[in-house]
């Protein structure tokens, strides 16, 4: 069942605990579901609806708004070729054409071996490195056609697996934020109108000083 597995339920609870309102955790939890299954399944969305306290229709409403969430399976490597204006000026269209030919798929498609899904993407904030692309959101700069082909060969051979985790993993576990319980200030409850302690106390102190 592609609901969240027990480990991820634990993590989901930790994430939920950071927000004043549970629905705020929805996008991070959708990422978690996508990390688990490689895409966001209907079952996962129903599970998230339970976790954040809304209807599945609302979860789908959010999920479907955002480009990164895939509601159908994609290959373990999602190759996004940037077609933003800077990349456009420096050959993005040509790179894309080359990619379609060499992979034998149109944008949006997945290669016959199921490994690679090709997409066009809007500006990736690497404009000075045009044309650029991302594989599972890891950058490749100034990509020439040959470099693209080499990249695909390496991906298929699993040579880049250390650098590029499978689709869905945005941050590896060790690098995720983890707020230790003894250090947490805690989420700021919405309906408790109290002024933060330091705001006035320091003012007093400075008045005293002045």
């Amino acid at each position: 069942m592609p609901r969240l597995n027990p480990d991820n339920i634990e993590l989901a609870k930790e994430i939920l605990g950071r927000y004043p309102r549970p629905k705020s955790a929805l996008i991070p939890l959708l990422h978690l579901a996508q990390e688990q299954d490689g895409w966001v399944t209907d079952d996962a969305m129903e599970h998230l609806a339970e976790l954040v306290g809304c209807t599945p229709a609302e979860v789908l409403g959010t999920c479907s708004f955002y480009e990164m969430f895939k509601r159908e399976p994609v290959g373990p490597y999602l190759v996004n070729i940037c077609h933003g204006i800077s990349c456009h000026l420096l050959g993005a269209d040509e790179l894309l054409e080359h990619a379609e030919q060499s992979l034998g798929v149109k944008t949006g498609g997945t290669t016959a071996d199921g490994k690679i899904t090709l997409e066009e993407a809007e500006c990736q904030a690497a404009c000075t490195e045009a044309p650029c692309l991302q594989v599972n959101y890891r950058y490749r700069y100034k990509v020439a056609n040959e470099a693209f082909d080499q990249l695909i060969t390496d991906l298929r051979a699993g040579k880049l697996d250390d650098e590029i985790p499978p689709h869905g993993t945005l941050a590896r576990r060790a690098t995720r934020q983890h707020i230790p319980a003894d250090r947490a200030a805690g989420p700021a409850a919405v309906d408790v109108n109290v002024e933060p302690v330091w705001l006035s106390r320091n003012a007093d102190a400075s008045e005293a000083k002045g």
Binding site: D42, M45, E46, T55, A57, E58, L60, G61, S64
Partner: peptide, 22 residues
């Protein structure tokens, strides 16, 4: 208080719909 229909997708592809089978 029954949000079982919702906007889905974005921009020019936006549509109103239910969750599949709900």
């Amino acid at each position: 208080g029954d949000p079982f229909i919702h906007f889905q997708d974005r921009g020019n592809d936006s549509q109103v719909n239910t969750f599949p089978d709900h």
